[in-house]
Design a protein around this nucleic acid. Structure first.
Lengths: 204, 204
DNA sequence: TCCTTTAACGACCGATCGGTCCAGATATCG
DNA sequence: CGATATCTGGACCGATCGGTCGTTAAAGGA
């Protein structure tokens, strides 16, 4: 059973560009420049599309931005699901999670910042679509971390008196704060040591 | 000895508006909307100035923004110096510091966000003037917190194995991360509990 | 009171914004 | 091959951007 949705077969000239690749390139531009500072010509240059093609494919700048943001968040959630996979050791997972952020906030990587945070600060207050996506992302991340901490606690690996929910919020705020200060500071070994020290306060 | 700098006395019509108050109102607009999303008419409405007056007084939008950012940072550093005053008990100071951020990130306050973080994400990568100010601000904050922690350690109030420099970076990242997630989430009691739990891991 | 000096104002500027539309190219199908 | 459908590039649109400048109003000093 091909042609599942009973849509008539396309007849004319087929699309000659990869839509997902265009979204990814657009994501890169928004990531580097932010929403307002990204002008149409920037997006056209990055996607190698003409105005007409871009508007036909994506509707408008805002819709393309949402596609790019979704892509960025999907990537992050995928990474999260791998690092904090319930089938793996939760403490190892938390170490990998923190190590990932330390790496991503070091040097030039760090200075590029984070599209989610930049968007939260630039648009979340005045854009319901954006707000929903970002609130959901932070919620998912905190839930994944809390789950890993709960499993660690059940395995007797948490220090006395550590509450998984509180510790999860602490860890999430820590890594997001890392991304903020690494926009301007070169956070190298100190950050690595800080991440280790923080986790060591929680595990037995 | 009046007229110290041998500047000729002003002769014509004196300025009829308060420059500092105008900077403060402009700061509020940039704080709420961000740099790029703030248009001249927004600033004119907020400051009750005409285009001509605003440009005569402040040069251009970017210069006015730097004035506003400096004002915001000065306020924050002043608060920091009060909360973490070396003459006061360092642990009380750290509690006040965290409590201030918890309060400032709750409810509607939280959703307004933080001008420093928003600016870091929006402009720091491409604006050296901005980058310098923000890097310096984070450095000052981390230094003040580290100093308080060092004093606490000297007073025997720190838990075993806590390094003031690492703990300072952790606390700064935590509070900045708080500001990020509170842009979209309503962080109420959980955040308060998390802040308490974090500090309790460091003090004896 | 008159003159000098400066602030205040808003019309106006070129550039650029996001977005539309059309003419021409091109690929597929009957 | 011809008909058809879609893509492609860029001319073009009104709106708005940040910024300038000539005019007017007002406040001393002489």
């Amino acid at each position: 059973m091909s042609n599942r949705t009973s849509v008539p077969l396309p007849r004319g000239r087929p699309r000659s560009f990869d839509e997902d690749a265009a979204v990814e390139r657009a994501m890169g531009v928004f990531w580097s420049r932010g929403y307002h500072a990204t002008a149409l010509p920037d997006l056209l240059r990055a996607t190698k599309l003409s105005r007409g093609s871009l508007y036909a494919a994506f509707g408008d700048k805002h819709s393309l931005f949402l596609r790019a943001l979704d892509r960025y968040i999907d990537d992050a959630v995928t990474r999260l699901n791998i690092e904090l996979d319930p089938r793996k050791d939760p403490v190892d997972g938390l170490r990998a999670y923190l190590a990932g952020y330390v790496h991503r906030t070091s040097g030039a990587h760090g200075r590029r910042g984070c599209l989610v945070i930049a968007t939260a600060m630039e648009l979340a207050g005045r854009d319901a679509d954006v707000n929903r996506r970002i609130a959901s992302f932070f919620k998912v991340m905190e839930a994944r971390v809390a789950d890993a901490l709960s499993r660690a606690k059940a395995a007797g690996k948490l220090a006395d008196g550590v509450d998984p929910a509180n510790a999860a919020r602490i860890l999430v705020c820590f890594v997001e704060g890392l991304r903020v200060i690494s926009k301007t500071a070169s956070t190298g070994a100190i950050t690595h040591a800080a991440a280790d020290a923080l986790l060591d306060r929680f595990i037995r």
